[in-house]
Computed example of a mutant assay.
Amino acid sequence: MTKRLSEKENYFSMSEFLESYYWAGKDDSLGSLLGSVTLWSDDGELFDQAIAEDWHAFFSDVSNEDHTMFESFQAVKQFVNEYLPDVAETTPLSRNLTYNIRMICEMTEAQRNQEPVWKNWVAAVNWITNPNVVPVNESPFLEKGQSLPNPDNKGFRKNQFPIAQVLPAPRPEIPMEDSPEMLTVEQSFQVQLAFMRHYYQVTSDSELGNYLQQYSKVDGSNIRYEKWCRKFSERAEIERKASSLTVLVMAKDYYEIFFSDNALHAQSLRKLSYEIWKTVYLPHSQRVQTEVWQNWLTAVHQVME
């Protein structure tokens, strides 16, 4: 019989799954998030109601019924896309974990059964659904004066799910190739706006329309433009310019934060965010054949004319 998880079982499994990687790597991004993920009140309600509401949206988006093992993992994918996005500001361990989760969701059953991250997920689910396990309704972080578990205890914390024995594999480096178009910071921001306007014309998505209306000014009054300028200065390559490919990678991070692939955003924006994420990781010979890249080049040429 196929095991199915309720919304709360799915959540507790995710909590233990993420914590197992925190304890393995003492990762700052995971540690900051888990303080909110694992703290429960005496009446069984999560203290952070924003996370509780988001989780309900992610769980329900996959299915309104109890989830299979794989469906429950798809809800986790939406959660990490929102709270541990694959962007430069997220710590490497968390980024690697998010990347691996996203890729596993695209694999066949035979492929994912070989993946250590998937195996750890299955173990977390089995641990939570074991009738002898009692959920801990408070943060299990170490208290002052306590130390990490003794390595002789085979990776177990007392009465807790085991520490992850295998860290998520490093995500691949984004394949970069020379791009003939070199953009100034203002041009780069205009390119991503032109790119977004194309998709607004195609989808008429109100969320994207509101964003374009609110954040299209290319001056100091636009907080998003100021943040873009700071990021551009870190990526600029030659004479304070960056290639169109480098700017697309910047745009990938931008979309991962503002329009991440989860149920909090319109389906058209989720799909666009996903397609950009997938495109930047492709070898450049494959990337240039994608719709995302073709539309991106169109936006570049519009701005540079």
Rank of each mutant, 00 (worst) to 15 (best):
K3Y: 08
K3N: 09
E7C: 09
E9W: 01
E9T: 01
N10A: 13
E19L: 09
S20C: 03
Y22N: 01
W23S: 00
W23Y: 09
A24I: 04
G25V: 03
D28Y: 10
L30W: 06
L34P: 00
G35Q: 10
G35R: 12
S41M: 09
S41G: 05
F47T: 10
F47K: 14
F59G: 01
S60V: 03
S63A: 11
D66L: 05
D66I: 02
M69Y: 06
E71L: 06
Q78V: 10
Q78F: 15
Q78M: 15
E82W: 09
D86W: 13
E89W: 11
P92G: 06
P92D: 15
S94K: 09
R95E: 12
L97K: 03
L97C: 05
T98L: 08
N100L: 06
I101K: 03
R102P: 00
R102Q: 15
I104E: 05
I104W: 10
M107G: 02
E109F: 08
E109S: 08
A110I: 10
Q111E: 15
Q114L: 14
Q114N: 11
V122D: 01
A124L: 00
N137K: 04
G145M: 11
Q146P: 00
Q160M: 15
Q160T: 02
E173K: 07
E177S: 04
E177R: 08
P180L: 14
E181S: 10
L183A: 07
V191I: 12
Q192D: 04
L193V: 05
L193E: 03
Y199T: 01
Y200I: 01
Q201A: 13
S206P: 02
S206L: 14
L212F: 12
K217Y: 11
V218E: 07
G220L: 13
S221I: 09
I223M: 12
E226I: 15
K227T: 08
W228H: 14
C229N: 05
A236Q: 15
E237S: 11
K241P: 01
A242E: 06
S243C: 08
S244E: 13
V247F: 12
V249H: 14
M250H: 03
A251K: 02
K252P: 01
K252E: 13
K252N: 14
I257G: 01
F259H: 05
F259K: 02
S260Q: 11
N262C: 07
A266Y: 06
A266G: 04
K271H: 05
K271F: 08
S273E: 07
K278H: 12
Y281L: 08
R287K: 13
V292T: 14
W293Y: 15
Q294H: 11
T298L: 14
H301S: 07
Q302H: 11
M304R: 12
